[in-house]
């Protein structure tokens, strides 16, 4: 019994070291946060279209699964994921809704003119309020929304080809999209 007491410190340390080793596992990033909005209905919003013709709202997300992508012309990582978004739109025919986060319409338009426009529709979230309601904490962020308008998954940061092939597309398939 007394001996066991003396073994306790090394035992506790080994447990601790186990946790440390676990948190060093490849692919684990302590900085990414899960979304609190998963399985909740997408928030209500009403944003002016980039095209200038009226507004886009939550109703536009319903009826079939869509992917909502928050982007901005001032955001460098957004350019990294842009080719992937183009591929999603052109090759996979995924309905992409773009939300320009805290961006000037002219800048967003220039970005899309220069690199191509993968979006079916683009809303201008000038003050970032819609982003706040979605729980965005940094652009780019990508949300998968099912046919009933519920958020099913969020990707933080630029999408990777791996995330698209192994997570986003399979999820859309199970949701019965495209």
């Amino acid at each position: 019994m007394r001996r066991l007491l003396y073994l306790a410190p090394v035992g506790l340390f080994l447990v601790l070291a186990g946790y440390f080793a676990f948190s060093l596992r490849p692919g684990y990033d302590p900085h990414t946060l899960p979304s609190a909005m998963i399985d909740k209905e997408a928030p209500v919003f009403e944003l002016a279209r980039l095209a200038g013709n009226g507004t886009i709202g939550r109703e536009a997300l319903k009826g079939h699964p869509v992917v909502v992508n928050f982007f901005a012309s001032w955001c460098v990582p957004c350019r990294v994921e842009h080719p992937l978004l183009m591929r999603l739109a052109q090759r996979e025919h995924i309905p992409l809704i773009g939300i320009a986060y805290k961006d000037k319409p002219a800048d967003s338009a220039r970005l899309l003119a220069q690199f191509g426009d993968p979006y079916r529709d683009v809303g201008m979230d000038r003050d970032g309020r819609t982003g706040l309601d979605f729980g965005v904490y940094g652009v780019p962020e990508t949300y998968v929304i099912d046919a009933t308008g519920h958020i099913r998954k969020r990707f933080v940061g630029p999408l990777s080809a791996e995330a698209v092939d192994h997570e986003l597309l399979p999820l859309l398939r199970t949701l019965g999209g495209s």
Binding site: L33, P34, S35, A36, M37, K40, L132, D133, F134, G135, Y137
Partner: peptide, 8 residues
């Protein structure tokens, strides 16, 4: 705020 960003 918690509804949007979670307990974090």
């Amino acid at each position: 705020v918690v509804a949007r960003y979670g307990d974090f």
